[in-house]
């Protein structure tokens, strides 16, 4: 997966969590949490969904790496390079 495909994947998962999420003014460098009103349960959903779809095991200490859209892409790119 390319960096852009990973970002699309994350947005797709977030849309499943909240179909009213507004991505129009999303800043890829800023925390998703504040911009999209995501809580810790939503982040857990993202982690579970990545495991379900791509068999990715993300250790709890790495959760902060999923803070913004860009940091997600940076963190996940090597893990999903063959996906």
């Amino acid at each position: 997966m390319t960096s852009d495909e990973i970002k699309d994947l994350i947005l797709e998962i977030i849309e499943d969590i909240d179909d009213e999420a507004d991505f129009a003014s999303l800043d890829a460098d800023q925390p998703l949490r504040d911009q999209l009103d995501l809580d810790s349960m939503d982040f857990l959903d993202i982690v579970m969904e990545l495991r379900k779809r791509h068999k990715l095991q993300i250790p709890e200490e790495d959760y902060p790496q999923l803070a913004s859209l860009n940091s997600c892409a940076t963190y996940l790119e090597p893990l999903l390079k063959d996906a």
């Binding site: 349960m41 857990l44 959903d45 982690v47 579970m48 495991r51 095991q57």
Partner: peptide, 17 residues
């Protein structure tokens, strides 16, 4: 309910590791 989701995540990690 929310705790149920948190624990399900732990179990899923365990079963898939």
């Amino acid at each position: 309910i929310n705790y149920g989701v948190i624990v399900a995540n732990d179990v899923d990690v365990f079963l898939k590791s």
